[in-house]
């Protein structure tokens, strides 16, 4: 009886460590790029140092991108992006916390390509907003997971004001592309 009790305790204590042992994937070199197109000017930037962690069993995914790590073609654009719009010294990071929801009956821990719905909270410029988009997850046999998603952002939604003089140069809706290759942690 005593041994049985001990066994149960041991099993319970092991539970959390077992859940820790579930497969997690991560990277520090994810890519997020965005593109703004107007007849006046095209603006694009890329960040290749995005941190991300993904847990296939639960579908949980998180992203963190340093705003200052977005690189523009023009140095002045980058300065203005940080100083005038994103205020990156006050809000250094953009984050996303959410879930990848596969189609009914699909399992994200299986090798192959999965279409998913991305749902979660996107925080940019200190303003948190719910976000929904469609994405793809490719679980490789080699222990990597590729995730991609395109979504639209409206600067106004995140409290970023664009003054009249440059309004014509910055698109109302900016397209962001996420491309990450995660490997097993």
């Amino acid at each position: 009886m005593k041994t049985a009790k001990t066994l149960i305790y041991a099993a319970i204590l092991l539970l959390p460590s077992m859940s820790m042992a579930q497969d997690k994937y991560g990277t520090r070199n994810g890519e997020i790029s965005f593109f703004s197109s107007t007849p006046m000017e095209d603006i694009s930037a890329i960040n290749t140092k995005v941190a991300s962690v993904f847990v296939p069993t639960t579908g949980t995914i998180e992203f963190s991108a340093l705003i200052k790590a977005f690189e523009f073609e023009k140095a002045l654009m980058q300065e203005h992006f940080n100083e005038n719009y994103m205020e990156s010294s006050t809000f250094p990071k953009a984050t996303f916390k959410g879930k990848l929801v596969p189609a009914e009956g699909d399992d994200l821990s299986k090798t192959g390509i999965h279409a998913v719905n991305v749902e979660g909270m996107l925080t940019i410029h200190g303003v948190e907003k719910p976000m929904k988009a469609k994405g793809t997850v490719e679980v490789g046999a080699d222990g990597t997971v590729k995730a991609m998603c395109d979504f639209d952002i409206k600067p106004e939604d995140h409290g970023i004001t664009i003054p009249g003089v440059v309004r014509a140069k910055i698109a109302q809706t900016i397209t962001a592309k996420v491309r990450v290759t995660l490997s097993k942690l």
Binding site: P16, R28, T60, E62
Partner: peptide, 23 residues
């Protein structure tokens, strides 16, 4: 038993909270 449950509940919670710290 309850105590043990509490312990495992909090650990798994904290693990959820900052996944990115795994990096």
């Amino acid at each position: 038993l309850v105590f043990a449950f509490a312990v495992c509940a909090t650990t798994s919670l904290s693990a959820q909270d900052d996944l990115l710290s795994l990096l």
